[in-house]
Design a protein around this nucleic acid. Structure first.
Lengths: 180, 180
DNA sequence: TATCATATTGACTGTACGGTCAATCAATCC
DNA sequence: GGATTGATTGACCGTACAGTCAATATGATA
């Protein structure tokens, strides 16, 4: 079945783009990981950029689901911000690869102008705004800078070698850091 | 004079490597910025990697000087950590390009094995340890994770588009964040 | 002015990579 | 079995790029 192959390619792409930068990863690399010939990738994806975007998108949706997809009920017992942060840090813990993929090319999001990169940038910006919403809902003050700091800290820590900085510490620093 | 040319090349390299990733920057790019032919670069530098290393090193020494080169006297009036953080944030403010250059390939520092990258990694690690020393001198507790968080936060914020997150906010978050 | 070291160029090489395409393979349907 | 459709391959193209090198320019010195 063709869909299995497409999935295998996407998985390989996620793996490759998470551990090396966009420019470093070659289509042959991805093909080799997916145990497939390079030309086959172009049967399912029109270009490297598009493949990256789809891999990124997948990871990003996972993040959004985990972080904002919490049922309202849970919000009763834990404060919104803490609950959000808990999910975010959990994601860092359990889905490090996805977070790396999301964060690795963040600077390019803001410099590159093409369709795909703009698409990703816009999505990322919406995400940051939502985070700001959560924070400001508790402090009552605008929090866009804090939101950016939070995504930045969690994101960049995902790029460090595993074990170099514990998620617990990060959580702690953020909680203290955004305290009003 | 040859030294002027070498300086021009280094300046161009700093500029290029600060605003684009290592893989994205071509020797032709650098040559063109320096208004020089590509082959001339190889007269002064043996390879792209070496050129990057020297550009990185220069920026890194600037950072170390600014952050740790404060005279002991000043330490009397301001607490060590605050003084250090002030210098660090000042560097972010005034030497953003240098900080970008230093931080842009940080992940590669930990994955690449070659001579030059190891050289940079080792230097960076020493830096983080020194930061940890400053922090723990005040709290009396081991602070290597905090140090890593601090360098990470300041560093990654340098990679964001200018104006997206103010240095003041970052300073604030860090001060709160590392409070014991 | 001829010499010599330093500095600079242009033409070139090998290779890696993104992408294309015609040809084959596999399975399904008539 | 033959035709049709989708999946997969291999061979290929153009290009961009790191790096080489012989040739030339520049300028100081004797």
């Amino acid at each position: 079945m063709g869909n299995r192959t497409k999935e295998a390619i996407l998985k390989a792409a996620r793996e490759a783009f998470a551990s090396h930068s966009y420019a470093e990863v070659s289509m042959e690399d991805i093909a080799s990981i997916a145990k497939v010939k390079k030309s086959l990738i172009y049967y399912y994806f029109p270009s490297k950029e598009e493949l990256f975007k789809e891999a990124w998108d997948e990871a990003f949706h996972k993040l959004e689901d985990k972080v904002f997809g919490v049922s309202e009920e849970d919000g009763k017992y834990v404060k919104k911000v803490k609950q959000f942060l808990r999910s975010y840090i959990d994601f860092l813990r359990n889905e490090r690869q996805s977070l790396r993929l999301i964060e690795r090319e963040k600077t390019r999001l803001y410099s590159e102008k093409s369709q795909n990169w703009r698409y990703m940038k816009d999505k990322y910006e919406v995400f940051v705004q939502k985070v700001a919403g959560v924070i400001s809902s508790e402090t009552g003050r605008p929090a866009s800078e804090y939101a950016r700091a939070v995504t930045d800290i969690v994101g960049s820590s995902a790029l460090l070698p595993e074990g170099q900085m514990s998620p617990d510490t990060i959580e702690l620093i953020i909680i203290r850091g955004i305290q009003h």
